[in-house]
């Protein structure tokens, strides 16, 4: 059985004028970590809210843990954990009181499921008498994860769990998710960070409410058509203009400390011809190397096509 299924889910806001989710269809297998990757406003949170029974979709069907999100919403609420993008625990209660509260309203106790949260909880346990509102960003995320896990949910929903968290805490957080996966919990996680996408079992790329691609991270980058080159030079600003005006160029973007360049046809991918062109333009210290595309490259490539 699938942990989550979506079948042509559509959601609009403002009486149908704003299309947030457009016929989204995907499936998350039991025990899988599924990433929903897309920029802000792509419709990720709307999908989360439909699946967590907080929002009714206009059309389409969806199930979570085998239960229908509309007809059997009460059963879903018993067996999911939800961590919204915004920190939403009681700031005026302490760490321990928050955890205890969420355990008791699910008719369980911290003790009963301590194994599940142990790895995470030990990190915040020294602060268990501190009010949740006084915790640092990373600590808050850990507490929120603990609270979402305390009743041993079958499906875990994490809506942008690492937005606004420092780089070290982000890595730690994903390590924790990896461990949860071994406990057999299915996870749907959304993120605007492409580097985190690689850590999922499967990813869906979403933009403008449309699901553009569903595959494993490795298969996703393989879908990249043609060759991709990284180009560097002494004058990076002028390099971008020069590359964009090159006749064979399909697209060129600044990417970290290099330009990622793709060509209209593989025949255009002639390094010596490009070098000659750039040298004529006065570029020095040229470095041109073929690279394998990342998820972000692919994302830019397909959204570019989408936007014409």
């Amino acid at each position: 059985m699938s942990a989550i299924t979506l079948d042509n889910i559509t959601k609009t806001y403002n009486k149908g004028t704003v299309l947030a989710v457009d016929k989204a269809t995907f499936e998350v297998a039991e025990g899988e970590t599924f990433g929903l990757i897309g920029p802000d406003g792509a419709g990720k949170t709307s999908i989360f809210r439909v699946l967590t029974t907080l929002l009714l979709a206009e059309s389409g069907n969806a199930t979570v843990a085998g239960f229908d999100v509309v007809k059997e919403y009460a059963k879903i609420r018993d067996c999911i954990g939800y961590m919204p993008g915004r920190f939403s625990l009681y700031q005026d209660l302490t760490v321990e009181e928050n955890l205890n509260f969420f355990a008791t309203i699910f008719n369980t106790s911290i003790k009963e499921n301590y194994d599940l949260i142990k790895d995470i909880y030990v990190q915040i346990e020294p602060f268990k008498d501190r009010r949740a509102g006084k915790l640092s960003g990373g600590m808050k995320q850990k507490l929120a994860l603990c609270c979402a896990l305390i009743h041993k949910p079958r499906v875990l929903f994490l809506d942008e769990p690492t937005t606004g968290v420092d780089a070290v805490s982000r890595v730690e957080f994903w390590d924790m998710l990896k461990r949860l996966k071994h406990q057999g919990i299915s996870i749907l996680v959304s993120t605007p960070y492409m580097d985190e996408a690689a850590l999922c079992d499967k990813i869906a790329l979403i933009e403008g409410g449309k699901i553009l691609s569903i595959a494993s991270p490795a298969d996703t980058v393989k879908k990249y058509p043609g060759k991709l080159f990284a180009v560097k030079s002494a004058n990076m600003h002028k390099l971008l203009q020069d590359l964009r005006s090159y006749e064979g160029t399909y697209s060129c973007f600044t990417f970290g400390d290099a330009m990622h360049l793709s060509f209209k046809q593989d025949a255009d991918a002639d390094v010596s011809k490009l070098t000659a062109y750039l040298t004529a333009k006065g570029q020095t210290n040229l470095e041109i190397a073929e690279i394998t595309a990342g998820i972000e490259d692919y994302f830019i490539r397909i959204t570019e096509k989408l936007n014409g």
Partner: peptide, 13 residues
């Protein structure tokens, strides 16, 4: 306003 109602609404309360 704080958003805690979201968290409560997904529980069996």
């Amino acid at each position: 306003e704080i958003g805690t109602i979201e968290q409560i609404n997904v529980t069996p309360v």
